[in-house]
Structures are given as structure tokens and as C-alpha cells.
Nucleic acid binder design. Structure first.
Length: 279
DNA sequence: AAACAAACCTGTGCGC
DNA sequence: TGCGCACAGGTTTGTT
């Protein structure tokens, strides 16, 4: 579910509400959520620690602690972080609860129906050994200065654009919604081979990826009909009202008005595009 | 090297 | 109303 804009929105919520707070105690329900290490490792790593920052790399949330270690949270498909008043009834599938010290008396919940998400306390000095995929992420279009020259270099490969944009080792943070929206804005077909783009087309795609992500962050991300994604206060985003192709198969293209959006499967993922606008 | 399928889980929406 | 199937914002692994 959550892509860069949604994770960034969660990060901002953590920065506003959780930074500086000490974790008094920790409850772990489902051990699967902490499968990279163990229930006890998360409890030991977090109990008594204070969260000193809230960072993000692609779709990975990284919260440094005053112990020198850091908490990594990945929401995957259905994970949510929620701040709630202490003692509030927890939703179904609440797998981890952090009891925050101080006032107001609050808890930070990790809720995740599909259990693909995870939480782990790791040593930032040993990130390459402990969370190898985090160490190998490509540049983050929002957190890093992803210049056009660097971007052009990433496209010098004989690969279809859609799977290339989804590859977190190439660019970190773009997921299925924003890949489709970026390609539409750039007027490029998802199956175009990256190494066939003209300089002008590379420029369009660069601007589109950065623009779509920035605007989506401004809008607090996309909350679809199932309202799965919400920020840490339980509020949805509104970028979904700006979607031009995602989940619009069979509907009129909002850009040209003269063709219907089609859905194909590329790289095992639903892909939506306008066969007339995008070449 | 790159494309594809399957796997990890639970929930929801749709056609019959 | 109930049942079965398709599909879902992510990522990894194994196979062509």
C-alpha cells in the first residue's frame, strides 16, 4: 500500500508527535512482525530508549534511538502506524504496541492485517549486514538531490520503464501508483525500453517523477476506496483525486479525452496507461 | 541481464 | 444470502 508519499506523511507525523519521547514498555503480539530478529530483540532494543529522530529512505522508516541503535519500520502492503491515547481499544491486527512515557499518555501501534510489514532494531553502523536491502537502495527522489544527469544514468539500461521505476535499487520510493502516474505525465508507455528514450523524454520523465511525488507528499499521499492507508492520526490523504490513470481501466483518459485507459500486467503488477497519450 | 511466476498473508468486491 | 475467484499500495526468491 504505502509508497514514498504515504511513508513520508507517516514520517512527518512521527517527527511531530513521537520524537523526544521515551518508550516505557513494548508489547509484541505476532512474532512474524519482528521475524528479522525476534520478539525479545525488539523489546530489549526499545524498552527505555528515546526516539531522537524520524528519517526515511524510500519506503523504509528509520528512527534513531538514544541508545545508538535505530528502529526500522517497513509498512509493506497493509501496515499502519497509529498514535492513540493510552488504553484506547486497539484495532484488529495490532501486532506491536509501544507505550510512550510522559504526557499525554499515548501508545504507538503497528497494525498490519497482511503481516508483510516488519519492525526491527538494528545497529546503523552495521546496516549492510543487518538490513542489506536498505543499504542497497537507489537514490530517493525527495530526500536526495536526484539530478537529471544522475537520473539519465539510471535509465541507461535495456529494461522496460515500469519495472525499472519499481526497482528500489534503481530509485527508492516509487511504487505502483506513482510509477503509473509518472509515466502518464511523461507521456511514455510503461513498456518502453529505457535505453530508447530521447534526451527530451528523459527530461520529461525526470520532471514527472519528481513532480508527482512532490505533489503527492503535499496532498498527504493517496487513500483509496478501501481507506487502508491513513497517517498516524488516522487521517487519509487526498492525492487520489488527482490520479489520471491508476485504477481507471476502461474509463476515459482525463488528459486527451479521446481514448480509454487500459490495464495490462507488467512485471507481475497491474499497469494503467493511455494508449493514445503515451508512447 | 531481464522477464516472469510464485511466495509470503488477510480482506474485500464481484459475478453467479 | 452464500460461495468462489480475482485482486490489492511490496519485496524476495527461484526459474526461464
Amino acid at each position: 500500500m504505502p509508497e514514498l508519499p504515504e511513508v513520508e506523511t507517516v514520517r512527518r507525523g512521527l517527527a511531530a508527535q513521537v520524537i523526544g519521547r521515551r518508550i516505557r514498555s513494548v508489547e509484541v503480539g505476532r512474532e512474524r512482525t519482528v521475524r528479522r530478529t525476534s520478539r525479545q530483540a525488539l523489546i530489549d532494543g526499545l524498552t527505555g530508549a528515546t526516539i531522537v529522530a524520524a528519517d526515511r529512505r524510500g519506503k523504509y522508516l528509520v528512527c534513531p534511538l538514544d541508545t545508538g541503535e535505530a528502529l526500522m519500520v517497513h509498512l509493506r502492503m497493509s501496515g499502519r502506524l497509529l498514535v492513540a491515547a493510552a488504553g484506547t481499544a486497539r484495532p484488529l491486527h495490532t501486532h506491536v504496541v509501544l507505550h510512550l512515557a510522559g504526557r499525554p499518555a499515548q501508545e504507538l501501534w503497528f497494525v498490519d492485517p497482511r503481516t508483510f510489514g516488519e519492525m526491527v532494531v538494528f545497529d546503523p553502523e552495521q546496516v549492510a549486514e543487518q538490513i542489506p536491502e536498505l543499504a542497497r537502495l537507489g537514490p530517493d527522489p525527495i530526500a536526495d538531490d536526484l539530478t537529471r544527469a544522475v537520473f539519465a544514468g539510471l535509465l541507461r539500461r535495456h529494461r522496460q520503464l515500469k519495472p525499472l521505476l519499481l526497482d528500489q535499487h534503481v530509485i527508492a520510493g516509487v511504487g505502483n501508483i506513482y510509477a503509473d502516474e509518472s509515466l502518464h505525465r511523461a507521456r511514455l508507455r510503461p513498456d518502453r525500453l529505457a535505453d530508447t528514450l530521447t534526451t527530451r523524454e528523459v527530461g520529461r520523465l525526470h520532471e514527472s517523477v519528481l513532480g508527482v511525488l512532490r505533489e503527492a507528499v503535499e496532498a498527504g499521499g493517496s487513500t483509496l476506496a478501501d481507506t487502508q492507508y491513513v497517517d498516524i492520526e488516522g487521517q487519509g490523504g487526498w492525492f487520489q483525486v488527482h490520479h489520471r490513470v491508476y485504477d481507471r481501466a476502461g474509463q476515459r483518459c482525463l488528459t486527451c479525452g479521446r481514448a480509454d485507459i487500459v490495464r495490462v500486467v507488467t512485471g507481475g503488477r497491474s499497469t494503467h496507461f493511455c494508449p493514445r497519450c503515451q508512447r
